[in-house]
């Protein structure tokens, strides 16, 4: 299950509206508590897929290294990622699965139709290696968590 503060949940949905008709992407930071991933901050990332940004995303690993380091300094780990599907359902695609490598992390997808965020779903990357990995639907619990300052724009 993914637990996320309402302000962070709305922030990642707004990000998808801002970048429409292109895909947005970002990182979820927080803590892992058994099967729960608790989000305490988010970090917006740039989509480096200039060749096809309306249906592809990629986060610069250098940006991830920085986000991971800054999170570590605050006592946060990377617990998941988010991106948007402009004019496409909030379901994972074969490409999303093929390109997913962070096991036991959450992959949040928001459908953005004509510029407006609609459905947001989350999937846990389950399995033990590339051969048996799969996405499993997971519940998003939106609450009023005591959270750290909101993610940084980049």
């Amino acid at each position: 299950m993914l637990k996320i503060d309402k302000s962070h949940y709305e922030a990642l949905r707004c990000h998808g509206e801002e970048t429409y008709p292109y895909e947005c992407c970002g990182v979820l930071l927080g803590t892992m508590n058994g099967e729960q991933r608790i989000v305490t901050s988010t970090a917006r990332c740039g989509n480096t897929r200039d060749d096809s940004p309306h249906n592809r995303y990629h986060i610069d690993p250098r940006e991830l290294v920085r986000i991971q380091r800054e999170g570590r300094e605050r006592g946060e780990d990377i617990v998941g990622f988010y991106h948007s599907h402009p004019d496409h359902p909030a379901r994972w695609s074969p490409t999303d699965l093929a390109e997913a490598h962070w096991f036991s992390c959450s992959y949040v997808i928001t459908s953005v139709a004509k510029g407006k965020a609609e459905v947001t779903n989350s999937f846990e990357l389950s399995g033990s290696d590339e051969a048996d990995k799969k996405f499993v639907d997971e519940k998003i619990e939106i609450g009023e968590l005591e959270s750290k300052p909101q993610g940084r724009a980049s």
């Binding site: 895909e23 992407c25 990182v27 897929r49 096809s52 249906n55 592809r56 995303y57 990629h58 986060i59 690993p61 991830l64 290294v65 991971q68 380091r69 990622f81 991106h83 599907h85 402009p86 496409h88 994972w92 695609s93 074969p94 490409t95 999303d96 093929a98 390109e99 997913a100 490598h101 962070w102 992959y107």
Partner: peptide
């Protein structure tokens, strides 16, 4: 740092 890549997208 060991950093698995992050990518994907709606297109199949």
């Amino acid at each position: 740092s060991i950093v698995p890549s992050i990518a994907g997208g709606a297109r199949q």
